[in-house]
């Protein structure tokens, strides 16, 4: 036993040095932002040193200046976008998975092609479209303009998943006289739970972090999402870095917590969307 233990460290000591080094590179930035959020603006001590006492005023001021509203906005937008993507996405995936005719394959390729289109190329068009129909500074404006970009990923994931469901189940239902809709509702839909978790995580993170469209479509501060709120702190002339750091911590916290608890799904989501294709 003693001998085995020794040989483990003889063999692996360099791995542990590398391990500490890598973890350091990745955790020090998070450490710095947390420390900064707990120091007052007049505290000029090193950003690497711990605060002498816990200074929570930054957090208090972040919440007094509308962070709750921003969190609410982010939740409304994220939930709506993901919900639409799930409903529209799994519906669209069903015929693409089951009826692989030439026409449907072409439609499938169009959906995939949209993944490549940079949102920026579309921004000019979306912005002028929304400005014409009064969609600037509205929930529906930001929701609908975001849906298009997550939808192809959702369709792709659902399509791959439905292909793996045995066709015989559909056929049995069809023989029993069920139409397309009832087959989808009773046979396919109940089986989609695992892939739906993947879609929720993958697309939910994307929307929660979304910045570019929100920046231009949501201009009134009551409509700000968490990301925009953080941005406002950083770009404000007062250079309130403590407040900015606190806002950043508040914005990151929900995702960090979810990630630590649901890590398995976060990793599975990326692997499914990347490697299976």
């Amino acid at each position: 036993m003693e001998k085995a233990k020794k040989s483990y460290f003889q063999k692996n000591w360099w791995k542990h040095i590398l391990q500490v080094f890598i973890i350091g590179i990745y955790l020090v930035p998070f450490y710095v932002i947390i420390v900064m959020s707990l120091k007052s603006i007049s505290d000029k001590s090193s950003r690497l040193s711990l605060p002498e006492r816990l200074y929570l005023d930054n957090y208090a001021s972040v919440f007094q200046s509308g962070m709750m509203q921003a969190i609410l906005n982010s939740i409304i937008i994220t939930v709506s976008v993901v919900l639409i993507e799930i409903i529209v996405g799994c519906m669209a995936a069903y015929p693409l998975a089951r009826n692989q005719s030439k026409g449907n394959r072409a439609i499938g390729n169009i959906f995939l092609g949209v993944m490549m289109i940079p949102g920026l190329a579309v921004l000019v068009g979306v912005y002028s479209l929304l400005a014409e129909v009064g969609g600037i500074n509205t929930y529906w404006g930001i929701i609908l303009s975001n849906v298009g970009f997550g939808l192809p990923t959702a369709i792709y994931l659902y399509q791959n998943f439905i292909v793996s469901i045995p066709k015989e189940l559909d056929e049995a239902a069809c023989i029993d006289g069920a139409g397309a809709f009832r087959t989808f509702w009773h046979i396919i839909l109940p089986q989609l739970k695992p892939v739906t978790v993947t879609v929720i995580i993958l697309n939910g993170i994307g929307i929660w972090n979304e910045y570019m469209y929100s920046l231009y479509i949501l201009q009134r501060s009551e409509m700000f999402t968490v990301t925009l709120k953080i941005n406002a702190y950083f770009s404000a002339a007062k250079q309130d870095y403590g407040g900015a750091a606190a806002a950043a911590v508040v914005g990151m916290l929900p995702i960090v917590i979810m990630y630590l608890f649901l890590q398995k799904y976060f990793i599975k989501g990326v692997v499914d969307s990347a490697v299976k294709g």
Binding site: M91, A92, L96, I107
Partner: peptide
């Protein structure tokens, strides 16, 4: 079933 997705895009 894919008409809504197509319309959105």
């Amino acid at each position: 079933f894919y008409v809504p997705a197509l319309m959105l895009l």
